[in-house]
Design a protein around this nucleic acid. Structure first.
Length: 342
DNA sequence: AACAGCGACAACCGCGCAGAC
DNA sequence: CGTCTGCGCGGTTGTCGCTGT
């Protein structure tokens, strides 16, 4: 007998998430914090399975997520780390804290894999051409031995470089970093074993405590205009399909208009890309109670009380800048020595 | 203009691990 | 110690939009 499904298949909605669902989910998580996913659908009335909720949160709604096209540095970093760690996207993600594993995985599968294949086929063509010209008929085993040796040397260099970069990066700001465990479960990749043995340093991670709900709001904001622009024949376009629960009631209080259009309008509390950059719009349109709801749940409340109040967008901008700076530092250090490898 | 093929990306599925009981 | 449950991870699928014919 197999494992029971994580949720009843009947009555569970699948497919793309609507902004309404996003709002409900984010609002609930702001109230209760992430975790205990099993209770999320029942408490929110969302017709989604717990897994779907968790995925939606971790991949799209979670604060501090950077979306959009990958920079050259990020690209290099991913290629580099994939060579080191294999398809252990979660581990790779811990070096790029603003990206999600799903994002990195997709980017790898759709862009980088092809890119590398192209490069490899080009180089192997050249090699083949070279060999043919030289009339070389060396055995494939000796060649693989050589390339394996090369690969191992390269791997050692990589590990050394990565270790060095991480040491440097961590020494820059080790007080704000709450080191996660480098996932060691199910290590099968020899390179990752090496890493685990040689480098006890965990990957850096931008503490999520630096982020605020603003980023989640922005995430929804990014999604919403697209959704409005091209409503993909949603199974329901209004919130009528949601049950009435505590969370939904609180949502309705915040966004009182029940109609779909009204809901969209009410979401305009800065949920418009052009407006969102205008912080006055946002801070004006959010009530003090709502703003307090957006304060970082992981920060002690006393700390907030002592600090001079920042507008939530100012705080968000500062947090984002800090996170970006940290990531840039890490990347620069990581590639100072390894650029030649690619 | 209509259609087919392809690429990109969001979401789902199944498995494994860890902690609770 | 075995079972159950929740969660995370990686692979895969489904859908939509773009481009070429």
């Amino acid at each position: 007998m197999g494992r029971p499904p994580c949720c009843d298949k009947i009555g569970v909605k699948k497919g793309p998430w609507t902004p309404e669902e996003d709002i409900i989910l984010v609002s609930y998580i702001q109230e209760h914090g992430p975790g205990n996913w099993r209770s999320v659908p029942t408490n929110t009335g969302l017709l989604r399975c717990s897994k779907s909720c968790r995925l939606r949160w971790t991949n799209y709604l979670r604060p501090g997520i950077k979306r959009g096209s990958f920079t050259d540095q990020e690209e290099k970093m991913i290629i580099h780390l994939q060579a080191l760690l294999g398809n252990r996207w979660a581990a790779i993600t811990s070096y790029l804290p603003q990206r999600t594993d799903n994002d990195i995985k997709n980017y790898w599968n759709t862009h980088l894999k092809k890119k590398l294949n192209k490069i490899q086929s080009n180089s192997s063509d050249q090699e083949h051409h070279h060999r043919t010209l030289r009339g070389s008929n060396s055995s494939s085993s000796s060649e693989t031995a050589i390339s394996k040796g090369k690969w191992e040397r390269r791997l050692q260099t990589d590990i050394h470089t990565a270790k060095q970069a991480l040491c440097d990066a961590l020494s820059l700001d080790n007080k704000s970093i709450n080191p996660p465990e480098l996932s060691t479960s199910g290590i099968t990749n020899p390179s990752s074993q090496l890493i685990h043995q040689q480098s006890v340093l965990p990957p850096p991670q931008i503490s999520h405590s630096m982020s605020t709900y603003a980023s989640s709001a922005e995430n929804i904001a990014r999604l919403l205009p697209e959704w409005i622009k091209k409503p993909k024949k949603p199974s329901h376009t209004s919130s009528e399909s949601f049950g009435t629960t505590q969370t939904q009631n609180s949502i309705k209080e915040q966004f009182p208009s029940p109609s779909s259009e009204g809901f969209e309008n009410s979401l305009q509390f800065g949920f418009n890309n052009s407006n969102f950059s205008n912080n006055s719009d946002v801070s004006r349109s959010i009530s003090p109670e709502t703003t307090s709801l957006f304060q970082d749940e992981s920060k002690p409340k006393t700390e907030n009380a002592q600090l001079p109040p920042l507008s939530f967008l100012e705080k968000w901008l500062l947090d984002d800048a800090t996170a970006q700076e940290h990531e840039d530092n890490l990347m620069n250090l990581a590639f100072e020595e390894t650029d030649g490898l690619f």
